[in-house]
Design a protein around this nucleic acid. Structure first.
Lengths: 152, 152
DNA sequence: ATCGATGCAAAGCGTTTGCAGGGGT
DNA sequence: ACCCCTGCAAACGCTTTGCATCGAT
């Protein structure tokens, strides 16, 4: 517990090196921003502004490259923003999202992830997909709608 | 049945004018491409190339504006592509999608849409969301994975 | 010494906008 | 006559790339 930050760091080192990538302070800083502000699912620009407080010399290009590295080593996933800009999610457990159609804001949902939702929806679907040449890895569920009012 | 094309056309006219928008041959042509090639969920560029066969003088900007109009009048929805480019879906019934993580290819799923999936997942969630100021309009479910081989 | 990572600037790509001309209501 | 729509070109925003330099192994 008291060692949480450094054990996270080792996790990140290991994941990066397992993917043939190197650990760097920039990647660590980007990862820390994602872990700390994860519920916000920040955009690359927001991550850039946050991480600049720790590493004032970091460039936006490096943030993008760090995000690629984090995605490649499985520590982060990318959410498509309908508005064009991507959002990032470093939670390591599967979960659902709530998306505002007006602002693009994305939040995590507390509802626990059901590993067999697809099976419940259509028993046999997974097998049929496999037979048709589709290797199912998982699913994404998004609840869409409007927030009555936005936070300040 | 034999009147399908023209009744589609009237539907489109009505939907557009209900939204305060005008019917134009360009919008009709874009809509027809979407209806005809819908399972492919084409990108704007692909729609542009298709529709050019009928209207050689159409511009890409007009295609984008037509897509905005079709979305605004409810005849089409926009799918976010993780690669940045959007894909479009003119099916008028709710349904699920299959997405290839490698190529971005999107297909429709035959499995019927369950209007109460959210309620089954977490009874009371809809009410809780409403209390927290979120007006739920619907949900999106995507099965993600890899196609073993791509079609020629 | 090698090889990947950084940071800067420039390019790339999908999409949007400004604007003059055109057409339906 | 009005106002929306088209088509062209230019602008835009997010993301990627080229390249010289840096740093770790």
């Amino acid at each position: 517990m008291f060692d949480r930050a450094s054990s996270d760091s080792h996790e990140l080192r290991d994941a990066l090196s397992a993917a043939g990538l190197r650990w760097t302070p920039q990647r660590e800083a980007v990862y820390n921003v994602l872990k700390t502000f994860n519920p916000d699912h920040p955009t690359a620009e927001q991550i850039f502004r946050r991480v600049r407080r720790d590493l004032p010399k970091i460039s936006l290009a490096t943030v993008y490259k760090a995000l690629d590295a984090l995605e490649a080593c499985g520590k982060m996933t990318r959410l498509a923003g309908s508005d064009g800009s991507a959002r990032f999610d470093a939670r390591d457990d599967r979960h659902y999202h709530l998306r505002c159609l007006r602002t693009g804001r994305v939040e995590d949902l507390a509802t626990p992830y059901d590993p067999d939702l697809v099976g419940k929806l259509d028993p046999g679907l997974v097998d049929r997909l496999r037979d048709e040449g589709f290797q199912l890895l998982g699913y994404r569920l998004e609840l869409v709608g409007y927030f009555d009012k936005e936070p300040s």
